[in-house]
Amino acid sequence: MATITHEEAHVHAHGPELQHQFETPEQQKEAATLGMWAFLVTEIMLFGGIFMAYIVYRWAFPEAWEESAALLNTPLATVNTVVLLVSSLTVALAVNAAEEGNKRRLLTMLALTMLLGLTFLVIKGYEYSEKFAHCAGAKDPISWITGSDLHESHECLVPGRGFLFPEEHGATGGSHGAAHTASMQSGHQLFFLLYFCATGLHAIHMIIGLGVMSAITIMALRDRFSPTYFTPVEIGGLYWHLIDIIWVFLFPLFYLV
């Protein structure tokens, strides 16, 4: 296995964290940061495609957008925004703690971050289940599970064959033609489709982010970091902040305007 062992000439005076291909820890850190940023560029462009679709269809169906946004749970999303912004702060503080070599504070901040991330996912999951419960005919997720209160609601906001946008919220009364109703429905359906795609993709990134944070926590518990080497905390933090930035745009675009 000559490929992994170090050659004698390349054993450095630095710590074990310096990989064989680098000369200095600074070089390793800068390469990691630049590489992470290049990856973040990729992520931004990935979500860019969804935002592109959002712009195109919002342009086409402004009324449908307004009516649909009113049916999303804005108070919960606001709570979620606060949760994510706080988690961004805790991540920034975690990086700061790692920089100062304060292991205790680093672990606290990482734990807080993961807790906040989980909270976000739970709230998001509740929002989703609300929509699915309505499709199943229940008033809220709890009555959906217990099986009571069925057939209360006449809406289904999950895109698909069963999609049904409630009449009283739409501009379409009985006076309009059937063709018109169909096209209005399609605008609403596109809104919810994009909503589920965008927030779903965001949630997947959140889950990956939680995995990254757990890995960093384990590394911190094993004393892998020092004030001179905390690159994983830093680039993991970059990833977490990116998730936050995506939400900063998703929140107003879907819930507010």
Binding site: A92, L238, H241, D244, V248, F249
Partner: peptide
């Protein structure tokens, strides 16, 4: 975004 990118990141 600008705040997060400039300071947090």
């Amino acid at each position: 975004t600008v705040l997060i990118v400039l300071y947090f990141m």
